[in-house]
Design a protein around this nucleic acid. Sequence first.
DNA 1: GCATTAACCACAG
DNA 2: CTGTGGTTAATGC
Length: 225
Amino acid sequence: MKECTDCSIRSKAVNTLSKDEFKFHSENCAELVLEAGETIFKEGQLSSHIAYLKSGLAKINKKGITGSNQILKIVQPSRYIGLQAILSNKVHQYSASVIENSTVCYVDARSFRELIKRNANFAHELILHMCEDEISYFDRFVNVHQKQINGKIADTLLFFSTKVVGSDKFTIPLTRTELGALVCSTRESVIRSLRELSNSGIIKVSGKNFEICKKELLLSISNKG
DNA sequence: GCATTAACCACAG
DNA sequence: CTGTGGTTAATGC
């Protein structure tokens, strides 16, 4: 088991801790290596821990009344998952799982709350973190509800290309159904949209591998909705 | 009305 | 799991 002292991807919040506080934090967290598909925590489960994604990629999803799943967000490294657990020791309001091999740090929620009370800078960093999250949820909410399918697909392709991978060639570790759940649409619409984009030469698709050929066009589709 | 869009369904690979 | 129609309901012109 690695110590927090060795951790090169500490959160900004943890970096504000004093020596004692840092020791306290280290004693209350544990690192875990997860394989693609494994769950970080489940909706309805007791939320005794907060997760911090050190490497890899994760998704957050929540069951609706219809029983179908919505993917709320794709989580990138150095982000916390389940920060809402600092509210109280209740249950998680959503599920989280990794979609590629990842390392995750579980932090005890009680000790987290303790540090928030003790250290204002720590709390400040966490508030910033949560504000960023909320803004991104707002953006996604608007995008997903105002754009039509091609715009939404263009958005997510650009998201993975620029934000996640940083290359025009990339793979998306999600099934077509999951892509549908991510953009509030269906598997069929995703398939049709990808085929359209591919037929017009804007992208190349091969299973989960994608390549953006005409970025300008894709950007304009994303912007126009 | 007519056209567009996308969800729903069934079926095939 | 993925891809393909056909059908259907909603929306806009």
